[in-house]
Amino acid sequence: MTNTITTYIEKEILNSPDTQLTDQDDLLGSGLVDSMGLMRIIAFIEEEFGIAVPPTDMVIEHFMNIEAISNYVLKRQTIDG
């Protein structure tokens, strides 16, 4: 899952396949991912992992880095069944 998310962000959001993100790289605070990028990431994880991200969950703690996104997806998969 983490690799899938990382690849998507590097290729589709950053448009830079040569970039190598770590799980801890600050995506939002650093400005690497802007608000539109976040919306695209949310659309991607919803489709890819079969979850629904409620609007109330769109906060920095869930999307600040790849590790946080992966943990959030796992949590939603448990909730959504």
């Binding site: 976040l38 609007p55 109330t56 769109m58 703690e61």
Partner: peptide
């Protein structure tokens, strides 16, 4: 309204 930091989501929705 909502969580701290939820302003973007609230506004967007």
């Amino acid at each position: 309204l909502g969580k701290e930091g939820a302003g973007f989501s609230i506004s967007n929705h």
